[in-house]
Structures are given as structure tokens and as C-alpha cells.
Design a protein around this nucleic acid. Structure first.
Length: 136
DNA sequence: CTTCTAACA
DNA sequence: TGTTAGTA
């Protein structure tokens, strides 16, 4: 997968990302504080977002709109890897560590249910076990 | 002019 | 989250 370096290449400042995601700078920085994203920084401490960062923000936005809180999003979205996600280490081709199989599959299922529109016959998970991840 | 951090009428 | 202050 060679396109990964391009997807993880930090390119745009927060202003562009705001327009691309319809999120406020406040929200974007807030999500970074909670480690939902880890954009690179310029020498002047300016944030530089990669394509992956933008896509991740869109997923976060989608989840927020569905009423999922930060804690819940952390469970659904795969944890950010500073190595593979940060553009400052693009030269070091690091591998994304695989998480436990069963956990990974569960996360994928939850992500599909939360991001994709709920399809018939699969609301039990969200209404049951996952209720604690949603806002009151 | 754009972005950053910190803080709160 | 919004928003503002004071910088860089």
C-alpha cells in the first residue's frame, strides 16, 4: 500500500479542514485534545492535517451527529497511531499493530452500525450494550 | 490575515 | 461549544 504515505501526508491548515468538514476550529482542536486525531505540526506550531485526518474528522462528525460522545467515539474509531498517522515520521514505514481479532471485528461492526445507516434487525447492540456511550 | 493557547460575561 | 484576548 503505497498511497498511505500520501494519505498521511500533512497538507492543509485548520482553515481548510474547517471548510472540508464543516467543523469549527474549536471542535477540531477539542477532538485533538481528546486524542481522536493527532495532526502534525509545523515548525511554528501550526497544525497540518492529512487526508486521513480529514476523513477521520468526518467520521467523528458523523458520530457526534448521531449523539455519540467522545468516550463512545474512542471505542468505535481505531486508536490513532502516532507513528503511522503523523506526517512527521512519513519516512519511517511503520506497521499498524493488529489488535485482538475479536475486538477488531466487534469495532468494525459497531462502526458500520453507527456510521452507516442502521439497517433492519440490528438495533439491539446500540440500544443495549452501547447505551452508555451515548449522551443522556 | 490566519492560527494558537487559555479562559470564561 | 461559543467566543474572546493576546501572540506568533
Amino acid at each position: 500500500m503505497g498511497d498511505e504515505i500520501r494519505r498521511n501526508m500533512a497538507l492543509f491548515p485548520i482553515g481548510i479542514v474547517m471548510k472540508l468538514t464543516d467543523l469549527t476550529a474549536r471542535q477540531i482542536r477539542y477532538y485533538e485534545q481528546h486524542e481522536l486525531i493527532m495532526p502534525a505540526r509545523t515548525s511554528g506550531n501550526q497544525r497540518l492535517f492529512s487526508f486521513n485526518d480529514v476523513e477521520r474528522l468526518l467520521e467523528i462528525k458523523s458520530l457526534i451527529e448521531k449523539g455519540v460522545n467522545i468516550a463512545g467515539i474512542k471505542q468505535v474509531l481505531s486508536p490513532v497511531n502516532k507513528e503511522s498517522d503523523d506526517a512527521t515520521v512519513l519516512n519511517e514505514h511503520t506497521e499498524v499493530k493488529r489488535r485482538e481479532l475479536t475486538d477488531k471485528q466487534l469495532h468494525k461492526m459497531l462502526k458500520q452500525q453507527l456510521l452507516g445507516g442502521n439497517r433492519r434487525g440490528q438495533v439491539s447492540l446500540i440500544q443495549g450494550e452501547l447505551s452508555r456511550f451515548f449522551n443522556p
